[in-house]
Design a protein around this nucleic acid. Structure first.
Lengths: 177, 177
DNA sequence: ATTTACATGTAACCTGTTACATGATTTT
DNA sequence: AAAATCATGTAACAGGTTACATGTAAAT
């Protein structure tokens, strides 16, 4: 379980509403963490019940009140406990590779066009991550120091996407013949 | 959902028992698909109820009967339908990166040793995959042709692990200072 | 006029993990 | 003597997805 800790990490940096967290997961850290809004709101409720987070309502007109969540001392304790504990390596379940493994049983044009579709998506992701990197590299060295750990995770995203695209070249080679 | 299709792909190549499938997932295709035995046995039961697979019992002494599952025509139809259908790109939830993102809140020695531990695991995985590749490359060109799609997935595993380890070098650099 | 963004939630369902259960054979 | 391998399963729980629900304001 770790959506719990992903949220605690985000709230440890600064307070966020559920909606904010959703945007973070979609826009800035989606290359290493994903969650749907239903999952986030449910988890926030649980964390609140456990008193690891607290919230203040921000009244808005025409919209539901915005609940701004902040981490509590108990939350910080739990986060530190988790940070010190070993974490299992990432488990991969990749449906595209299942398809390719079974490609003998399908028309290869279908598989080939599927790969092309995925290449486009991965290329877009890479471009987006490279733009984030450019933004980081334009910061002052002091600010760069502040964001060095998030930047390291961004590097993982970039190197991961680059490797994926290099593999895709091998794949298209094979499907061309 | 796709354990269903991962199993169908495996059974489409040749019949397997639940235990066999578990070994496959652990040993040969674990770099793209993972499942626990409980999940596999449950899924096999469901697939059997849906008549996508059938089994024959192999009587053994001192052990439970081995159920050898094979794909049915209906199963092949379902597999083909799925193979032709687009698949969503892989969603990543990586707890190690969550930790690094929040590394400001933890003793860096803990994070650094955690990364070292992961490097060892990834290096072992890479070595294992390279050994599998060596085996493939020693096959006759005819046999290589037969296994070209599984080999392509293996290449994905290798390129993925290599990229991970290159990233880990950047990470250790940062944690050394 | 329609879609997207904002903002939160409930309910049902599906997928994956952990704990428990059995019992012979082989390896360390 | 203890642990790992073979071989299958049940039950409870945790995590994640899909469908449904509401309603304003801004952008296309």
């Amino acid at each position: 379980m770790s959506l719990k800790h992903a949220i605690l990490v985000m709230l440890d940096q600064k307070p966020h509403s559920g909606y904010d967290l959703l945007q973070q997961f979609k826009e800035s850290v989606g290359y290493f963490w994903n969650a749907k809004h239903q999952q986030i709101y449910r988890q926030l409720k649980i964390l609140h019940d456990e008193e690891l987070i607290a919230f203040q309502s921000e009244i808005q007109s025409g919209k539901p009140d915005k609940k701004i969540y902040a981490i509590t001392q108990q939350g910080k304790d739990e986060l530190l406990r988790w940070l010190k504990e070993p974490v299992a390596t990432n488990k991969i379940n990749d449906a595209l590779l299942v398809k390719i493994y079974g490609a003998d049983s399908a028309p290869i044009e279908d598989i080939a066009s599927e790969i092309e579709r995925h290449i486009e998506i991965h290329q877009n992701t890479l471009n987006y991550l490279l733009a984030l990197e450019k933004k980081y590299l334009s910061l002052s060295s002091n600010e760069q120091l502040n964001f060095r750990y998030p930047y390291l995770t961004l590097r993982r995203g970039i190197l991961g996407e680059e490797a994926w695209l290099r593999w895709a070249e091998e794949a298209t080679q094979l499907f061309k013949k």
